[in-house]
């Protein structure tokens, strides 16, 4: 069974990396979510899957009587899930803010590329982008773009 799960982990990673490489920032977030899942599965599999009983000590006993699933990777994964959730949420909001500011979420577009070139004046291309986007965008997005300007 480990073989199948290992293949699944590989697939998760490959898909996640492909999405992250796409340059579309929304897809990047999807990729991040996927890679988090992949890592969690990887940790679980690396802790072996022989025993399926949950790591709980029965109420009548003081110690385990039967072998149970490995508790250590589970604790690691529990932590990783919550952290991953926090990161994905933060990234989403960063995207939201970036979009209001730059007017695009395509990482290969000008506002993202030129930010580095002009060392101290990185806000300038953003201002241009906002002016360019207003005729195309929906009313809601215009409000957001306005947020970024104020």
């Amino acid at each position: 069974m480990e073989t199948i799960l290992a293949c699944l982990v590989g697939l998760l990673f490959a898909a996640a990396l492909y999405l992250m490489l796409s340059g579309v920032l929304v897809k990047f977030v999807f990729g991040l979510a996927l890679i988090g899942n992949g890592i969690n599965l990887l940790i679980l599999t690396a802790g072996r899957l022989q025993h399926r009983a949950p790591p709980l000590i029965p109420a009548e006993n003081r110690i385990l009587s039967e072998p149970v699933a490995n508790a250590l990777p589970q604790a690691l994964i529990l932590t990783a899930i919550v952290i991953g959730f926090a990161m994905v949420t933060f990234l989403l909001i960063l995207l939201y803010r970036t979009y209001a500011y730059a007017g695009t979420l395509d990482a290969d577009e000008r506002p993202f590329l030129e930010e580095w070139r002009e060392d101290d004046s990185c806000s300038e291309p953003f201002v241009q982008a906002q002016q360019e986007i207003s005729p195309l965008s929906s009313p809601r997005e215009t409000i957001l773009a306005g947020d970024g300007r104020t």
């Binding site: 109420a59 529990l78 899930i81 919550v82």
Partner: peptide, 12 residues
């Protein structure tokens, strides 16, 4: 502390 659950799950 004794059964599945705990602070994280409860908060979620």
């Amino acid at each position: 502390h004794h059964e599945p659950g705990g602070g994280f799950a409860a908060a979620l």
